[in-house]
């Protein structure tokens, strides 16, 4: 990254959506109870590969990393996560309906 060829710096700014703020809060809180740490967050982000920077937003990458960290730490299983995600998806078509 450092020193690699890169183009113009984009100065557009967006306000964070509620779901993005929640992802940020989950990282902080999961770290505070010892389920993950900054380095383990970064390690999974890096393992997702450079393509993820093109195809996913910042907090999309973060929730993917937090989720994998929780499975690794034994907070919940992949089967439990799959069940819960199916339930959430069935609640409605928008974030507001599902949350």
């Amino acid at each position: 990254m450092g020193g690699d060829p890169a183009g113009d710096i984009n100065h557009e700014q967006h306000d964070f959506a509620l779901w993005e703020k929640r992802v940020d809060a989950l990282m902080v809180l999961a770290s505070s109870v010892g389920l993950m740490n900054t380095d383990s967050l970064r390690r999974v982000l890096e393992d997702m590969g450079k393509e993820s920077y093109e195809t996913m937003s910042y907090y999309e990458r973060w929730i993917a990393s937090v989720s994998q960290n929780m499975v690794e730490a034994g907070a919940f299983s992949t089967a439990e996560l799959a069940d819960k995600m199916a339930q959430v998806k069935a609640r409605g078509a928008t974030y507001g309906d599902a949350t």
């Binding site: 779901w19 929640r22 992802v23 989950l26 809180l29 999961a30 929730i63 993917a64 937090v66 989720s67 929780m70 907070a75 919940f76 439990e80 996560l81 819960k84 995600m85 339930q87 959430v88 998806k89 974030y95 599902a98 949350t99």
Partner: peptide
């Protein structure tokens, strides 16, 4: 969906 699920499970 993943954010909601992770939050609720935790």
């Amino acid at each position: 969906v993943m954010e909601i699920a992770v939050r609720e499970l935790l």
